[in-house]
Simulated assay, not measured.
Amino acid sequence: MNRIKEVLEQKGIKQTWLAEKLGKSYNMVNAYAQNRQQPRLETLMEIAEILDIDVKELIISNKPEQESK
């Protein structure tokens, strides 16, 4: 699962803009944003670079957060 949609909303960026920057179709970017399809790692890294964020901010962890003692 990814957080592409949430990050785009936080930054006020449209999916069409991201699609243009990535050189991908709007439908493909929309599939990523809706979590219908997951981007390849290379694409995820490119999205993070375009959005100027750490790639980890685009990923939803599969492990629950551990409480610090």
Rank of each mutant, 00 (worst) to 15 (best):
P64N: 09
S68I: 05
Y32N: 06
N30Y: 06
K63I: 12
L18T: 08
R36F: 05
S25Y: 02
E67W: 00
R40Y: 06
E20W: 02
M45Y: 05
E6L: 08
K14H: 12
L44P: 01
W17R: 14
Q15A: 13
K69Y: 05
E6W: 01
R3L: 14
E46M: 04
A48C: 09
I50C: 07
E49W: 00
K11H: 08
I53S: 05
I47L: 09
K63C: 06
Q15L: 14
T16H: 05
D52N: 14
A48F: 01
L18W: 03
K63L: 14
E6T: 04
R40Q: 14
V7C: 06
W17S: 14
N62F: 00
N35W: 01
L22E: 08
Q10R: 14
K21M: 13
N35C: 12
N35T: 07
M28F: 03
Y26A: 10
L44Q: 06
R40M: 09
V7I: 15
N27V: 08
E49P: 00
Y32P: 04
N30G: 08
A19W: 05
I4G: 05
A33T: 04
E67C: 01
K5F: 03
Y26T: 12
Q38P: 00
L58T: 07
L51N: 03
W17N: 13
N62V: 03
N35G: 03
K21S: 11
V55N: 01
R40S: 12
Q66M: 06
A19D: 12
A33N: 02
K14F: 10
S61P: 03
N27W: 00
I59K: 05
V7G: 04
